[in-house]
Structures are given as C-alpha cells and as structure tokens.
Design a protein around this nucleic acid. Structure first.
Length: 299
DNA sequence: TTCACCAGTACTCGGAGAAG
DNA sequence: CTTCTCCGAGTACTGGTGAA
C-alpha cells in the first residue's frame, strides 16, 4: 500500500451504508460519476468488487459485509478527529441524543440530569426511548446512541461504564399489613405480586430465591413499567418489587411504604453502554459524563 | 452505473540564481 | 563548492459533464 486517502475510507463507508453509488454520492456531496470512479479506486485498492450489480440494485460482497462495521467505526473516528468543531462549545451545541432507558432511570436520575443538561447545554435535546427489546443492533447502527440500565447481554465491542448499584425492595400501600413487623420469605409468598416485565414474563430472581426455600409467590399482575407497578399496588393488597432508589423517589408521592425484602437478591448494577464509534465524539463524551456525575451524587 | 473526455489542482523534479 | 529558494514544465489525481 503506497498511501491512504481518508476520503476513500469515508466514501467506502457511504457506499456500504447506502448500498448504492447514487445514494453514496448524495451522502458525500459528489456527482454519481465521481462516486463511481471512487468506487473503482476502492476496488483497485482492496482487490475486491465490494458492490456488484444485482438487477437494479447493488449487492455487497462477503468482503464488504465483513468489513462494513469496522469501516463505519474507522470513518467515524476520522470524522471526529478532523472535525473543525473539535473545541466543544456547549452553549451553542445543537444536537439530539437518543437515549434508551426505562422509567426507573428517569425516576431516579432524570430530573437531575435534566437540570444539568439544561444548564450546561441549553440547546441539546434528549430523546428517551423505551428499553423495548434491548436490541444491541440499535446501538451498533446508531439508532440508539446511549443505553442506560442493567447491561447483561451486550456485543463484545460495546463500551460499558458503571453508574451505580441498587437493590430491590418491596412496595405496598401505606396501611398494608406487610408494612408492620419483619418481612419473612413466608410472608412475602403469602400475598399477590405485581411484577414488572417488558416481555410479559412473570418470573424473576425472587422466584428463584423463594424456590430455594421451598416457597412460591403468586404473580397476579404483570406490567411493563415500575411506575405502573407502583400505581397498581397503591390501592390493592398486592406488593410490587422495585429498585430501592425508585421506591425512595416515589413512595411518598404515591402513598406507598417500601419494605426491605427478607431475602438476599443479587444487586442491580446500572451502567451506560455505547458503541465505540462515539468514543472520540466530544458531545457524546460530555453526555456520558453528565450521566456519571449525576449518578455519583445519588445517596 | 459506467465510460470518455475535460478542467482544475497539487505534487514532483530539474534548472537557475543567490547566499554563505 | 555547497546549500537553499524560486520558478516552470510535466505528471498524477480528482471531480464535473455528457452520452450510452
């Protein structure tokens, strides 16, 4: 290899993302012939056709598919390195960040994060998406720029930064009998439960722990959010299991009592996750730092 | 989408002249 | 004599237009 033209890398990224010479030309601000010639240079440089005609469409070769993600990461790095706006000016920064997280996150740190972002970068917009399927592909494609929550099944290339730990507690209405006296596993299993699950699953770590003691609980309601669970138990005999920080935040306002579970459960580790293409992206790094700083101030 | 052709730009290289 | 700077010609590269 004689030399490397960064424009070729950017053009290759545009071609692989668009899957079309015309589309890539539009993306790069070139004419279609110029992009076609650039594709020809890429073919010469790589020794691979990269995109081949299939009727009216262009299909990527196996080599193109294999390098697509790495090319995208590398071109993002190049853009970030050569970006004229390398000196981040938060007062004028206009950008929408897509953040995936659940209502627990918003309840615990949403307000403080909102104040911090508003004071440091007033023109920044935060678009919160529900966790949904926890799709890793959304992080890889850039549809989700930052994921906040319990990071369990991530791709090996994704970056993770721990924010804080939490533990599950029970919440019941204020005058509920469970609120008086010690909450034993047996008493825990004696009431109906509201379970939080985005996928409609009624089984979790509490069931495993109870089964080890020869007990089982009755799951009577399954809801998608912690807020919904808290709302349901406030006028029923049921209890819900929610993260402790969330319970502390909403119990007073909803007339609930939070009760420590008389059973040992693994702690919740809440963390940020993002794709490495944002490593060198200063606005993204600033937002990650905002989350981290706000989380560190939690008691 | 690709090819042929054209224009503009940048780079390389060699020669000429000045300075030490 | 050597080194440095400037200048012009040649070459390579990139991107545009028009046609197929």
């Amino acid at each position: 290899m004689h030399s490397v033209d960064a424009n070729l890398l950017l053009a290759l990224d545009a071609l692989l993302r668009e899957g079309s010479v015309l589309g890539a030309a539009r993306r790069m601000g070139l004419s279609p012939p110029a992009m076609s010639r650039t594709l020809q240079r890429l073919r010469d440089a790589t020794g691979d056709p990269l995109l081949v005609r299939a009727g009216r469409r262009m299909m990527p070769t196996p080599r193109a598919i294999a390098i697509r993600e790495r090319v995208h990461v590398a071109s993002s790095e190049v853009r970030a390195l050569l970006d004229k706006a390398a000196d981040l000016d938060l007062s004028t920064l206009e950008r929408t960040f897509t953040v995936r997280g659940n209502d627990y996150l918003l309840g615990v740190i949403g307000q403080r994060l909102d104040v911090r972002v508003q004071s440091e970068a007033p023109r920044v917009r935060l678009a919160f998406l529900p966790e949904g399927t926890e799709d890793v592909e959304a992080l890889r494609s850039g549809d989700v720029e930052l994921d906040v929550g319990v990071q369990s099944q991530l791709g090996p290339e994704l970056r993770v930064r721990k924010l804080f730990e939490d533990k599950m507690v029970g919440v019941v209405r204020k005058d509920h009998p469970l609120g008086r006296g010690r909450l034993t596993p047996k008493r825990l299993a004696s009431v109906g439960h509201v379970v939080v699950s985005r996928r409609g699953k009624g089984r979790g770590s509490l069931d495993v722990a109870l089964e080890a003691l020869g007990l089982a609980r009755r799951v009577e309601r399954i809801v998608p959010t912690h807020f919904a669970a808290a709302w349901l138990v406030r006028e029923s005999d049921r209890m819900a299991m929610v993260p402790g920080r969330f319970a502390a935040q909403v119990s007073g306002q909803l007339g609930l009592r939070s009760v420590p579970l008389g059973i040992e459960l693994p702690p919740l580790a809440i963390a940020l996750a993002w794709h490495p293409r944002y490593d060198a992206d200063k606005p993204h790094a600033w937002l990650r730092e905002c989350f981290y700083r706000v989380a560190q101030k939690l008691k």
